[in-house]
Write a protein that binds this DNA or RNA. Structure first.
Lengths: 148, 148
DNA sequence: ACACTAATTATAAAGATTATAAAGTAATAT
DNA sequence: ATATTACTTTATAATCTTTATAATTAGTGT
């Protein structure tokens, strides 16, 4: 399953004339395997065993390449680092204000909102982002015990 | 109208024990007056006429104070600077991918989404963010003429 | 006006990301 | 096969936004 996603991604890249270097293969592989939403630095650190000489710039460059090929979505926040999400099916994210955990959340796209926004503002709407924030189950338990 | 908002904000601050300095007054005033969504640097530059010695840190510090008092919302993006929005009524934002213009968009809160997210993930949901992206009217005209 | 405390300033530091230039590697044509 | 070319990686420096620090200044209640 994950393997299939990786193969498909590699084919997509090859077909659009992007070379498959060992570094790119490894970064993609990590993105597919990791069920989390890693930062560029997470990826850099995770791969420094295999590629002791890899530069952070390589990670950033290739994440940009993947983003431009539509393989990866960049989740941007204010001060903190961007997180990168391998694109499979459409979904939103629910984020814990306390520990930062990101949980995938499947919900039908908000087409109506897009239509109304387009109508009201005169924009040609192309996409939207939505995130839901709160406190995750384990942080709530901690809070209860610690009287936080 | 704008004056009323400013006065109300000043009262809120005073009541919570925050000193009203000339800098704070000016920053709040600018936020209320400007119908845009300025960055910290926008504010800093706009006020350097009145306050030639004001530090950027003062702008950031006070924007944080206002945020913590609930007077101002911080709109965070990835690489770019945060933008600050004086809180009046609840609304979302529609953002132009081409020129960055931010337009206010009034729409009922997505309560249902929050409820379902809470139910599915076990989070105690507290808030959400949504932005709609596209191309604004004037950029679309430009694109047509320039065959972009 | 005085004393107390908070706010401002100037500066440095931190952190994430991008730019640059040199060296390396893969693809293509000869 | 080899030379040529274009693309990648590496190492490093630079940029940009934001925060931390320490010294000075200024509000506020008595």
């Amino acid at each position: 399953m994950a393997e299939a996603h990786l193969q498909e991604a590699l084919t997509t890249l090859k077909d659009s004339g992007v070379r498959i270097t060992p570094q790119r293969h490894a970064i993609l592989d990590y993105l597919v395997q990791s069920m989390s939403h890693p930062t560029a630095d997470d990826i850099y650190k995770a791969l420094e065993g295999k590629f002791p000489n890899m530069s952070v710039a390589t990670v950033y460059n290739n994440l940009r390449v993947f983003r431009e090929s539509g393989l990866v979505k960049e989740l941007t926040y204010g001060d903190a680092s961007s997180r990168f999400d391998f694109v499979t099916t459409e979904h939103y994210h629910v984020i814990c204000d306390s520990c930062g955990t990101i949980v995938d959340f499947h919900y039908p796209g908000l087409d109506e909102v897009e239509h109304i926004a387009s109508h009201v503002t005169g924009f040609q709407v192309r996409h939207h982002r939505m995130e839901i924030y709160g406190v995750c189950g384990s942080c709530r338990q901690k809070d209860t015990h610690e009287q936080l």
